[in-house]
């Protein structure tokens, strides 16, 4: 498996992508007013923290960051044994009337994002929801798209995208395993 692992983004690429996304978020929202970042655990939560830091270093203002666990709202709960819940931390300022940017590592079927939108519906009513992802690998099952993409990565369904980040895995990288379009 590891032999076929191809690195597509290294730590420098990831940092540049995040810093570009930070600028894009600020550009699109014309500043930091009412901005809230919500990361989807586990890797999305760390990416949200990093984006918040990047935004702070550009604008000099710290913005609220939280996490939102989607486990209880997944549509595939019954296809696997029950999963452990991950933390949901909503900033004290709440999400009502805010511009919420959801942050995740990989956008694939879009089902996680659907679950996140449902989970958010229980917590409040944001004025707007945007989506930032480090990698968009295509193959959407639902009409969902990202507003900010670190890297568009055309993949085949046979391939597996692995995102490593320092906070969890000890290093920053995005790699693909498996052969494009080939069989196992």
């Amino acid at each position: 498996m590891d032999a076929a692992l191809r690195e597509v983004l290294d730590s420098g690429d990831i940092n540049r992508a995040l810093s570009r996304i930070a600028h894009e978020i600020l550009e699109k929202n014309k500043g930091v007013t009412d901005l809230v970042l919500l990361g989807i655990p586990t890797r999305g939560a760390h990416l949200a923290e990093r984006l918040a830091k990047a935004i702070e270093s550009i604008e000099g203002v710290s913005i609220p960051v939280g996490t939102i666990d989607v486990t209880l709202h997944r549509d595939d709960l019954r296809s696997r044994p029950a999963r452990a819940l991950l933390p949901t931390v909503i900033p004290v300022s709440g999400i009502d009337g805010k511009r919420v940017v959801l942050v995740d590592d990989v956008l694939f079927s879009g089902r996680t994002i659907r679950a996140a939108l449902d989970a958010m519906g229980e917590l409040g009513r944001p004025a707007q929801v945007q989506l930032a992802v480090l990698v968009d690998r295509g193959h959407r099952d639902l009409p969902i798209r990202a507003d900010y993409v670190g890297k568009n990565l055309p993949t085949s369904l046979k391939e597996h995208v692995r995102v490593s980040i320092t906070e969890i895995d000890g290093n920053d990288s995005v790699s693909i395993s498996g052969t494009p379009g080939g069989s196992e």
């Binding site: 666990d69 209880l72 933390p87 949901t88 909503i90 449902d118």
Partner: peptide, 18 residues
């Protein structure tokens, strides 16, 4: 798990679809 559920139920979420 109870800890996470308590945080949700103590907050605005009274019902989960699970």
């Amino acid at each position: 798990t109870a800890e996470e559920l308590a945080k949700l139920v103590d907050g605005p979420v009274k019902k989960l679809p699970t």
